[in-house]
Design a binder for these strands. Structure first.
Length: 696
RNA sequence: UGGGGCGUCGUCUAAGGGUAGGACAUCAGACUUUGACUCUGAGUAUCGUGGUUCGAAUCCACGCGCCCCAGCCA
């Protein structure tokens, strides 16, 4: 649609090299992961960069495991990485390599440097070495072992390899310059003694090469032309070059680019590992994780990921990409390719009172308006339907286009219906809508040409299939997780404080029957809701769908905008929502945004019963009388502060106009107001007033 | 008081002496049997100060700001 994208700086280097025939016209790149964790979206950028460079310039791309540290590496990671790289379209053909396969040659080269007087065995321990290294502003001192003869060094180095010395007692170091301004050049370690089992080499080695020593050799052996790495290795390039030059061997060019950073997530292996180990997520493939595995399970396509990686560009600028760009990339691809279906996440029953009893009709609906070839399907229609709760309002604002008492809407592909009456239960909750349909609107067009403002989705009650629908949201509610809590005393992992308490909501929905037999990985657009895929937990008769990403929602945006000015006059906030939370981090409290406070309805309530919630040590399930006829069930994260018995009979303040929310499978209809946090929590007391009293 | 790198709309990213362009986001509108998609329009940017030049985001000088480096991790 626009002009061809201009070249990024690495492509310019490659083109210049091709033009000058620097590498004999070859382009050969590689992706060199350490198998110590799962791949994440940041790795995707590197994989896409390296592999497309090779493809675009007629070159080759290698996958190489940089497995030089047996203490951290595992076969499980190797397997997952291979699978993810392939899935992303990184085509390494038969070029799957392991640094550990080069250990023999690396060792020989090390001996050569020893003999040349460019490397020596050092007996300093880690702490001493640190002292000798100096600081950023002061030069280091030469090791007392720096001047050992080549013969002595060779002997000691061989004995290191034999396993004669204890781990940590000796290292082989390059003899460069202890006074260099670049600390990496202050006699860096080439080999350390490690007595651990290696996932491929077993116990064959007890000395292992360091990254700086090994990496250039690996690239050299594989005849890599452009060795692309991230910015933090820029300081290491002089060392990369030094080793290859001293050895006089094939010498690739190292080029550094800025790694991907994304807001509203964490991308460090350390933090991701922690989330998995401590069960904040269900595993590496939790759909909320920024891992390739997680995103795959969530329903992201590899095309979308590649498009995203291409779209964000390649530079040396240290930047943070807005996660909206990622979400945009999937929507883009799925909009073009995903078949449409109808599904109701939060069902509200509609009885069509003038529909002939027992009659079932099939209406024809397009599978994908973006793709004629996707064809059409027949969807059953009957006198009892489910529509989305959000698509009905008893007392709607002017701009609400959907169903309301006396209003008419179109049921997508079927008929116009008009809401005649609303049925409620004893507590005042809406249980059913009674509507009439207009037989002259079959297919969605009125014979008399009248228009309706809204079209909503629906399923036929008798034909709908139950499904668990997992609604994922961002894992973190702060743009830079942990940033606001960095200096708080006693906070070990600040990013945990920004975990989004509603990153997973599980809905019991109703989906159209065409979805019944779908298998893991199948992707759809649920009309007006978003893109969904069948989860691996899905079984015949027990469908499970993951929401990949919601559709853009102008109505939701408008509502949010309407609420803002009230509390935040200076809404000059940056692009992303600030998501400022109220001060109570426990449980549902964190769900309310500061800006919403002018709209919440507070009522006094009396606790009738309280009990602990299984498998949730912070949650209590309360039954609260709010003067509504029937008590409400409210789940509250106050178990650490209050024993259940102590709450019975107590007066509390309840936020009553929240969307019901499932917590550990219990639907919570409201929120108890508390202040403080953790065990220092105290409940707000409305005073001695009858349940149902408004609280100001 | 060390070494290395980077500064262009809100966010990414082009332009490498000659009209500061694009994408995402935002706002306004059109279209709509998805408040989606699509389309139209709008606003907002060259870190600062000097200098060279007819002309500087681009070249020079001096500042300023941010990132990385003191693992026997990668």
């Amino acid at each position: 649609m626009s002009e061809p994208r201009s070249l990024h700086f690495i492509e310019e280097i490659v083109e210049a090299d091709k033009a000058s025939n620097k590498w004999g016209g070859r382009v050969h790149t590689r992706f060199p992961p350490e198998p110590n964790g799962y791949l994440h979206i940041g790795h995707a950028k590197s994989i896409v960069l390296n592999s497309t460079l090779a493809r675009r310039y007629g070159g080759k791309f290698n996958l190489r495991f940089d497995d030089t540290n047996p203490a951290k590496e595992e076969q499980e990671y190797v397997d997952s990485i291979i699978d993810d790289v392939k899935w992303l379209g990184g085509d390494f053909e038969d070029r799957l390599f392991y640094a550990s396969d080069y250990f023999g040659r690396m060792y020989e080269w090390a001996e050569a440097l020893v003999q040349k007087g460019k490397a020596y065995v050092c007996d300093l321990n880690a702490e001493q070495m640190r002292e000798y290294r100096g600081t950023l502003t002061e030069p280091g001192k030469n090791s007392p072992f720096r001047d050992r003869s080549p013969a002595e060094n060779l002997d000691l180095f061989r004995r290191m390899k034999q396993g004669e010395f204890a781990p940590g007692s000796k290292t082989l170091r390059a003899k460069i310059d202890m006074a260099s301004g670049n600390i990496n050049l202050r006699d860096p370690v080439m080999y350390r003694i490690v007595k651990e089992h290696h996932h491929r080499q077993g116990d064959a080695w007890c000395i292992y090469p360091s990254y700086d020593w090994a990496h250039g050799l690996e690239d050299s052996l594989e005849q890599i032309t452009h060795s692309i790495c991230t910015l933090e290795f820029e300081n290491h390039r002089p060392l990369y070059d030094w080793f290859l030059k001293e050895l006089g061997i094939y010498h690739p060019q190292q080029i550094e680019f800025a790694k991907l950073q994304l807001n509203y997530t964490v991308l460090s292996k350390r933090n991701l590992l922690f989330l998995v180990k401590e069960k904040y997520v269900s595993g590496w493939d939790d759909p909320r994780m920024p891992t390739i595995r997680g995103m795959r399970r969530r329903g992201y396509t590899s095309e979308a990921l590649r498009a995203f990686c291409e779209d964000i560009g390649v530079t040396k600028n240290d930047t943070v990409i807005d996660i909206l760009r990622l979400e945009n990339a999937v929507r883009d691809h799925l909009n073009a390719t995903a078949p449409r279906r109808m599904a109701v996440v939060s069902p509200l029953k509609v009885v069509v009172t003038n529909w002939p009893a027992g009659q079932v009709e099939h209406v024809e609906v397009q599978n994908n308006p973006e793709d004629e070839k996707a064809g059409v399907r027949q969807v059953p229609f009957s006198g009892e339907l489910f529509i989305e709760r959000d698509d009905f309002m008893e007392d709607p604002p002017k701009k609400f286009f959907r169903l309301a008492p006396g209003r008419e809407v179109r049921l997508r592909g079927a008929y116009f219906i008009k809401c005649e009456s609303v049925v409620k239960d004893a507590s005042g909750a809406i249980t059913e809508l009674r509507c009439t349909y207009d037989p002259a609107t079959k297919g969605g067009n009125a014979a008399d040409g009248r228009k309706v403002k809204g079209t909503i989705h629906w399923v036929s009650a008798a034909h709908a299939v139950d499904a668990e629908i997992r609604l994922f949201d961002r894992l973190f509610s702060a743009e830079f997780p942990g940033k606001a809590h960095e200096d708080k005393p006693g906070v070990e992992r600040p990013f945990l404080l920004d975990l989004n308490p509603t990153s997973l909501e599980v809905a019991k929905g109703k989906v159209e029957p065409a979805l019944a037999g779908e298998k893991e990985g199948a992707r759809f657009q649920f009309e007006r809701l978003g893109y969904f895929c069948v989860d691996k937990d899905s079984k015949p008769g027990a469908l499970v769908f993951n929401r990949t990403v919601a559709l853009k929602d102008a109505w939701a945006k408008e509502q949010a905008a309407d609420e803002k000015p009230a509390a935040a006059p200076k809404a000059a906030a940056p692009a992303a929502p600030p998501a400022k939370k109220a001060e109570a981090p426990a449980g549902p409290a964190a769900e309310i945004e500061f800006t919403d406070f002018t709209k919440i309805a507070l009522k006094a309530g009396k606790v009738l019963a309280a009990e602990k919630v299984e498998k949730a040590d912070k949650l209590l399930k309360l039954s609260v009388d709010l003067g509504e006829g029937a008590p409400r069930t409210i789940v509250s994260g106050i178990a650490e502060a209050f024993a259940p018995e102590s709450l019975v009979g107590r007066n509390v303040v309840v936020v009553t106009n929240l969307k019901p929310r499932a917590l550990k499978g219990i639907e919570s209809r409201g929120m108890i107001l508390a202040s403080g946090s953790g065990k220092g929590l105290s409940l707000i007391n409305p005073g001695d007033v009858p349940p149902g009293t408004d609280v100001k």
